[in-house]
Design a protein around this nucleic acid. Structure first.
Lengths: 374, 374
DNA sequence: TTGTAGGCGTTATCAC
DNA sequence: GTGATAACGCCTACAA
């Protein structure tokens, strides 16, 4: 009736009980403390008045906001929206709402949104931005905040995390290229302050070794960020005259897209002249020409799993810390094809040079054998 | 010192004043009510104790949450993240934080997140999901909530809105195709419950008329949603044997991408056999093959402008309702090229048939002449 | 089983 | 100018 939303007092009055009783009747945890009959009356009154508990008041009293802070590098990267959707959907089921913060890879900005979220009393954090030694992590650990790392890992902390088995993914990418006849393979490594950067590099190295291929430093360039521009720059560097590379493994799809740009600049055709494999299988990447071969993982699921882990921690702070890895899957599309005999024979440096073989390739390429966690 | 964060009482105690005074000293709006001297003491104490006001408590008292609810169709659509970033950045400057809700074009879902957000006492809404006659709008109007429509308009409501001049954009697309020699042009129209769907169709029609081209119903198909699948379906329908179309204007980029699929299915080459123009210039669309010609508008700016309008409404409920249109811009890439003489002469139905000309094309194509707002 | 009272941290409205 | 008081809406010992 009134234009002012109904409060607990209104409900109590309508049900002719004390507000405290109404509160008990309405809260699942305390409903059993109240008689069948009054519970019914209260529920009915609440229904009739269209009562919605005021989360702000509740939050002030209980010190829980039912809000989760999510820090991601940049929502503009199409990789993240599906992950965030997974988070949101899962958390919503438990009455939580998500506050998203973009850090743009900037530490100061990250600090700002983190503090902002703490001030708003978020009940926990999902961090997809954590660098290897991050001041935030120390702070969160000290304050004993529920935290889950997503698509990131960090040593020395008691945080649950969900990420991809990057080693296995990159290993599979290398094995695929090797099976296609490529031997001169370069790697655009991600930033080494980020866990994905180092583990994918490790996967690449292990994969090369297992395939009996040389992977010296000259065939690895380090991107300073996961951006298209960096991919292009690194592509140019890798493809400098005389390199003789026939394939590139990029630490993520953005870098691979940048490579496409470098190929164009250099007049190279992909996949005929040069092959490339990405990582992430981000949305729309399959619509590029050529469609990018890449390592896929279940984006949405990464979000839901992170949510599950966080909820566990929130509901029981003593629940065990879990480190979860999702299995990746190589998806073969058009950006890597068998090495053409022409390339092997004719093109400068394009040959499967015996010098590149450090050992007879007798090692069977077992998936997962490249796994090296610490 | 203490592990419990400092409260206003702590600050007041440290500054040897009453909490009320401390509150006054700390709030910009009331600082002038206290003496220079005490203000200084309080500020200093707050600083020293690392005092951060508790937004929850403040919100309970002031009934303002400094939170804005944003409803968008789907964050997975790369069009939206930059818009949301614009919103966030602008609102953050004024101390507001954004709650994002995906509706997936589902009315029930929309209702749910809307209610959820109202329960959380958001201070205002940005609606990017509004359909032409939306129950939410009536409710919001009645409750006198600050609302801004984004990329949408609705008649009969006193809501500010920011959108694109869709008529002009689509007009320019048609004019461009006509100048390339195309005369048999089809349109994949967006859903007609959505303002963009109707205004872009209108722009298309006006553009065709101005170019002296026929645009009968057989050359218009209606998508039920802005999705790739719908684009593909509509593409097939438009390109049915005998249609003779040489170009398609799609109501948005997603539909255009769907067309690419249809072309592949039909063995048509784009742009040689068939041209297509999209709308939105969404991220990554320039990396497709061929790169899509499309109508661009400033995404980020759409967000910041919506934020500005909303802030105006929040700060002064009597501020005038503003309807803002952003100017679009045709960006010419590779998906539309001059009609090949071969196509004109040889291909079945590919000709610039005189029957298609409803009037001599003497009308100069003035940009913006197609503008028809109501 | 239900009522009482107090307080979460802040600010609006009085008095002084 | 500043202090006192109450209230925002809810929850939870504790008492009855």
């Amino acid at each position: 009736m009134s234009d002012r939303p109904a409060t607990l007092r209104d409900v109590a009055a309508a049900a002719r009980v004390h507000p405290a009783t109404a509160s008990r009747a309405l809260n699942p945890g305390t409903r059993l403390l109240v008689s069948e009959e009054t519970a019914r009356r209260v529920t009915e009154a609440a229904e009739r008045l269209g009562y919605r508990p005021n989360p702000v008041a509740r939050s002030l009293r209980t010190r829980r906001s039912h809000t989760i802070g999510v820090l991601i590098p940049d929502l503009n990267n199409p990789l993240f929206p599906p992950i965030v959707r997974g988070l949101e959907d899962r958390l919503a089921k438990h009455g939580y709402v998500v506050l998203i913060g973009n850090t743009d890879g900037d530490l100061a900005r990250e600090r700002m949104v983190f503090d902002q979220m703490r001030a708003r009393h978020v009940d926990g954090f999902v961090l997809a931005t954590a660098t290897l030694h991050n001041p935030l992590l120390a702070e969160a650990a000290e304050a004993d905040l529920p935290v889950v790392l997503m698509n990131r890992t960090a040593q020395g902390y008691q945080f649950s995390s969900v990420s991809v088995d990057n080693e296995q993914g990159e290993w599979a990418a290398v094995a695929h290229l090797a099976s296609l006849g490529h031997s001169r393979i370069g790697h655009i490594a991600g930033p080494q302050e980020i866990s994905t950067g180092v583990s994918r590099l490790r996967g690449f190295l292990d994969g090369m070794r297992a395939a009996g291929l040389a992977a010296d430093e000259s065939r690895i360039v380090y991107a300073t960020g996961y951006s298209i521009e960096e991919g292009r720059r690194c592509g140019h560097e890798l493809l400098a005259p005389g390199s003789g590379l026939t394939a590139i493994v990029a630490a993520n799809d953005m870098l691979a897209v940048g490579c496409y740009g470098a190929f164009d600049d250099l007049g190279l055709r992909c996949p005929e002249d040069i092959a490339v494999i990405g990582f992430n299988d981000m949305p729309f990447i399959d619509r590029l020409r050529p469609p990018l071969s890449t390592v896929r993982f279940p984006h949405y699921k990464l979000g839901t799993e992170a949510a599950k882990l966080l909820l566990e921690r929130i509901e029981d702070p003593d629940s065990p810390v879990k480190i979860l890895y999702l299995a990746p899957e190589l998806v073969v599309r058009g950006s890597a094809v068998p090495l053409a005999p022409a390339a092997v024979a004719g093109l400068p440096g394009g040959a499967a040079d015996p010098d590149d073989m450090i050992a007879p390739n007798t090692v069977p390429l077992r998936r997962g054998a490249g796994r090296r966690k610490r």
